[in-house]
Design a protein around this nucleic acid. Structure first.
Lengths: 185, 185
DNA sequence: GTCTATATTCCGATAGAC
DNA sequence: GTCTATCGGAATATAGAC
């Protein structure tokens, strides 16, 4: 099925947000590829905050599907899939949405904050469960409590998508591979 | 000694850059506290890119002094001081300059990029040396190569300054303390 | 050398056309 | 329901006053 205008706007907005940052793009950057005037975007998303909120909700959806699709995998394989997903983010020239929202935090209103918080907490929670399960099964090695390990995985890999812009692709791989090496039993 | 106007601009610019992001502040935000018109800032820094470049160079200076001041410490204590420095960044409501520049990367010109790359490489290099030395002295425990461990420390702690905006202060401490726990022998 | 008045462009947003 | 013409304001930057 063809993507609706609304869906296309969300996609373009998400790309711009994660490539350039919330304050670096305008509605004109979204309307131009669509072949309409910038004001047309305001019909679908009255304010830029509304768009940001919808982008956050879209990530909730995507992650929910990711969770379901990987639910039957072994914990260590879920981790591998998670890290591969971040690798694709890096290769596409974007950064993780969590870091993008975090550095633009003070430009976003409370409604956006709430959605981003819910999304982030769901990722941390999912990772914590993965670590706990993996440890119970003897697949994952970690001396910290599950949430702490989850935070260490998440911070390292999402910062790697940022750092690699500065220091190069190799450093992304070093971070990614070291996480797997370290956590695998 | 009283800070020069130029120095004050750099300070204000750095604060705004790390609190709100490069595209979220204007010269008016800098000129207002100084009691002058926004155009006055252009005399000191003709373009915003010039200001960004100078901010990057300022961080090179600060880090150089940090390195010298901590040179006589034991590796594990240097690490502790480094992580405490990031704690103060977090408490002041800012994020690490590396992450701030990284998410705004495509808004910055090649001259800024070069300065940020030099700064970042000096931090990674310093951390790598610290890890290597610490391991030789039996103070630091790490199964990866020094650069990889350095990258894991840096990514985790700078992302923690970002993540904690979303999930709260506790998570910053969890990351920070787990790094020390894990690396200390 | 330092700052102000001003130009130009672009931004987010509203009102209203179709 | 969808998009355009347009507004008010803010952004970066230049030219020139003091």
């Amino acid at each position: 099925m063809a993507a609706s205008t609304r869906e296309t706007i969300i996609q373009l907005g998400d790309d711009l947000l994660r490539k350039d940052g919330f304050n670096a793009f305008s509605y004109a950057d979204i309307s131009k590829p669509l072949g309409v005037k910038n004001a047309a975007v305001h019909y679908h998303f009255p304010s830029k905050q509304d768009l940001a909120e919808t982008i956050a909700l879209w990530h909730v959806d995507v992650f929910e599907r990711f969770v379901q699709k990987t639910a039957s995998k072994q914990p260590i394989d879920r981790l591998r899939t998670f890290l591969n997903f971040y690798h694709s983010i890096h290769l596409s020239g974007k950064v993780c949405i969590i870091g993008a929202f975090a550095t633009d935090w003070h430009s976003l209103n409370p409604k956006v904050h709430a959605k981003v918080q819910a999304f982030t907490e769901s990722v941390v929670s999912w990772l914590s469960d993965l670590v706990q399960e993996g440890r119970d099964l003897g697949q994952i090695h970690s001396k910290h409590n599950p949430r702490t390990t989850a935070l260490r995985i998440l911070t390292s890999i999402f910062a790697a998508t940022q750092l690699a812009r500065i220091t190069g692709d190799d450093d992304f791989s070093l971070v990614k591979n070291s996480l797997l090496d370290e956590l695998s039993n």
